[in-house]
Structure formats: C-alpha cells, structure tokens
Design a protein around this nucleic acid. Structure first.
Length: 289
DNA sequence: ACCCAGGCCATCT
DNA sequence: AGATGGCCTGGG
C-alpha cells in the first residue's frame, strides 16, 4: 500500500478518456489497472490516492506510467483563455493525463479501435489477453491476491496468427493484428522501448510515415499510436469526435498553431468532453454543482 | 430491427 | 488527390 497526493489526476476521467482499455471499475471506489505485466488497484479521494502496490513498485513502474514528471497544471494554463469551449472541456476533464503506456499494446489496441466502439474494444482486448496473455498474480487494495492476464508479447500473437485470433470477436481486424505482429518480429525489436526509439529516429512525422507502412494502420490510428504509445503529445488524432467538434465549435479547424507541441493533450480534453456529452454525464455533473 | 462505432483498404474517377 | 463502397461485430 502506498498513499500519495497528486495534482491534476483523476482516475475516472482517465479511465473514460478512451486512451486505455484495461482499467476497470472494481467496485467500492476501486479502479483496477493492468499494465507492464502488473496488476494494481487504486482508490482516489480528492487529490489523495491509495495504491495497492508498494512504494518501490510505484516509483519504479507506476510513477512514469502516470506521467508524474509532467506538470499538467502548467499545460492547462497555456490554453487560450478566450476559447470558452476548450476552457469548459479542460475544466470538465481537469484530471486527464496522457499515460505512458507500452507501445506494443497501443499498436494492437488502436488497430482494434478502428470502426469500433469503446465497450467492444475493451472486450476484444480482454479476450486476447485471456487467451494469450501470461497470468499475473497481483494484490488488491484489501491485500488479497488477484489474478489477471498480461497483454501478450508480439511473438505470441505472431505465432497465434489469424487462425488463433478468430472467435475473439475482432472481425476483419484479426488479419491486421497478424500483420503488425509479423512486422514487429521482422523488425527484430527487443522491446517496446527500443521500438519506440527506432520509430522516433526522425521525429513524430517520421514515426507516422513508418507506421503507415503497416497494413491496417491509417493516419488516425498512427496518430493515436504516436500520442499514446510514443508520448508524442503534438500528435492530434482526427477522429469522428474531433470532426464533429470542429464542425460545431471550430469552423476553420482547431487552432493547432496555438498549441505547438501539446495539441494532443488539448485533443484529449476535447474528446473526453464530447464523449461525456453524448452519454449524458455532462448533465449529471452539472446537477451535482 | 436498425444504425453506427475514436477507419482502413481497394477501387474507382 | 479525392470520393465511394465494403468490411466483422455487437452495443444502444
């Protein structure tokens, strides 16, 4: 157990922001998180957090994962004060951060996300982990043992091939997952960190063009992989929500030039705000105030 | 029943 | 270059 106060951090908001698909509401205010081959539970009360892991593990694994080295308060201050819609979005999702997740998992996850909805994306990923992931023994906030499944390594999915992925509800995306697994093996990456370094050799745009070579990855998925798997916060994934937001609030396009180097973070606030608007969460949040 | 979801690919003009 | 149709599946 490790307790800590953290600013600009909200578990529910991050879980609902569509950047991670393996966070779960575990009941009684607990959020379970599976990443980097580990399982953890977290509880939030205001800006105070209790984590089920020990201090060492938190500092070695989770602090970086939660992007604790970045001051989101300062980033939020750079938002145009006359942009009322963005200001509302930031206020609504003020605890959103861009997690530093594993590249390999992001690659597969955002391939699955295409032409798909979030509940089904979660279900698909869980099915892959249950079938091919190694079992993880973790500990809950109550100190009890919990079992979970890690996200399977590239070589496992490469060996599984399309045939092994059938029946998991992936639809036509199964062959794209096979393609990206084989691509990864051909590149001979030792791990996600090394692969990320290679992709970023020519910067963000270089990473995009390399990712676009992979079958099943188009511009939108490439930008999501850059933003969430490479932490290129200048990447600005243009999805159906952002197109709608631009139609309704930024008729000449979102002013990317104002956010040189961090437009992707603004995108997350806007995306989450729009998603919440659809689900009716906005009205209930307003009612609480 | 129906529509569509954080698109991509192939196949046209 | 830009526009269209098809695609697996299951939530709402």
């Amino acid at each position: 157990m490790y307790e800590l106060k953290i600013e600009d951090f909200n578990l529910d908001q991050i879980m609902g922001s569509g950047q991670c698909f393996r966070w779960k509401d575990a009941g009684n205010g607990r959020i379970s998180i599976t990443a980097y081959g580990k399982y953890m539970e977290a509880v939030q009360k205001g800006d105070v957090f209790v984590f089920s892991c020990g201090e060492d593990e938190f500092k070695n694994v989770w602090a970086e994962y939660f992007d604790m080295g970045t001051d989101y308060g300062r980033i939020k201050e750079t938002a145009d004060s006359s942009d009322t819609y963005l200001q509302e979005a930031i206020r609504f999702g003020s605890g959103i951060r861009i997690l530093r997740q594993e590249l390999w998992e992001m690659l597969v996850s955002f391939i699955i996300s295409q032409n798909n909805n979030i509940p089904r994306i979660r279900k698909n990923i869980e099915a892959i982990c249950e079938k091919y992931g190694e079992e993880i023994i973790g500990r809950g906030i109550d100190g009890q043992i919990r079992r979970a499944y890690a996200f399977p390594e590239p070589k496992i999915l490469a060996a599984a091939k399309t045939a092994g992925l059938e029946g998991l509800g992936l639809g036509y995306r199964d062959k794209y997952i096979e393609a990206v697994s084989l691509w990864w093996m051909e590149q001979g990456f030792s791990d996600s960190r090394q692969a990320a370094g290679w992709l970023l050799e020519e910067g963000y745009e270089g990473a995009v063009s390399k990712l676009l070579q992979i079958k099943g990855i188009g511009r939108k998925v490439a930008d999501c992989v850059c933003l969430f798997g490479l932490h290129c916060v200048e990447a600005f994934p243009m999805d159906t929500h952002m197109k709608k937001i631009e139609r309704e609030h930024y008729r000449s396009g979102f002013p990317l030039e104002k956010y040189n180097g961090c437009a992707g973070i603004m995108q997350q606030y806007l995306f989450y705000y729009d998603l919440a608007g659809e689900s009716g969460a906005l009205e209930s949040a307003a009612a609480r105030e």
